[in-house]
Write a protein that binds this DNA or RNA. Structure first.
Lengths: 116, 116
DNA sequence: TTATCTGCAAACATTTTGCAGCGAG
DNA sequence: CTCGCTGCAAAATGTTTGCAGATAA
């Protein structure tokens, strides 16, 4: 299953991944896809993106460091972007209000040049 | 139902809101809660926050302008924060890669002083 | 009456879990 | 044999929808 994830530049939902695998002949079960993805996500091996309908999309990321994504809302293509300024800003805001153990989610959605 | 939303400083899920209303004696149906919240969200009258499990939390926000939230992951209390720098940063990143029609999600999660 | 709103229950979609079987070590 | 991984099917979760009755104009 990993090969498909590696080969894709885009975010894939569990169900899309399952569909791709079935097309390729693999008799893979949906449960296994979910289980594997959950494991990979726990290990930080893939990035998780929660879409509107409560479904999750996964993508194997090249960068090992913390980063965010510029995602095409039409085709799902994702560019990894680093934002040091944003990291500092979130930390500063949290400090200001005494919040600790801070995490943040930052995603940028748009329409990519090819889909425009 | 609006009164409960107005009175709450925290993000509430549809189910939490439904529970509060039932406790108060209102025989409100869960479906009505969802329908009302969806309407309010469409009108931009409430801010929507998508939590981990694919569930959505809602909050009536005072600020009319675009803003983000510093949310306590323990009690749900939310502080509205403006981040002009982040807005500029997202736009700049999107421009750089030719993405158009750009939107973004920025949420900061942490543990608030009272819950720490 | 006509249109809107409500509650209930059923439908839906996504994800998780229980369980039995299979294969590697 | 034992352990872990797999698939299937059932359950759990959160949300949406169809429908009939109540309410208001």
């Amino acid at each position: 299953m990993d090969e498909v994830l590696d080969a894709s530049e885009d975010f894939l939902t569990a169900q899309e991944l399952h569909g791709v695998l079935k097309e390729k002949g693999h008799g893979v079960g949906l449960a296994t896809v979910y289980r594997t993805l959950q494991g990979l996500a726990d290990d930080g091996a893939v990035d998780v993106l929660r879409m509107g309908g409560g479904e999750a999309a996964y993508r194997r990321c090249s960068a090992e460091t913390h980063h965010h994504h510029l995602v095409c809302r039409s085709c799902g293509a994702a560019i990894e972007v680093a934002g040091p300024a944003v990291e500092r800003w979130t930390q500063r805001v949290a400090d200001e209000y005494g919040y600790i153990d801070v995490a943040h989610t930052v995603e940028i959605f748009g329409t990519c040049p090819r889909c425009a």
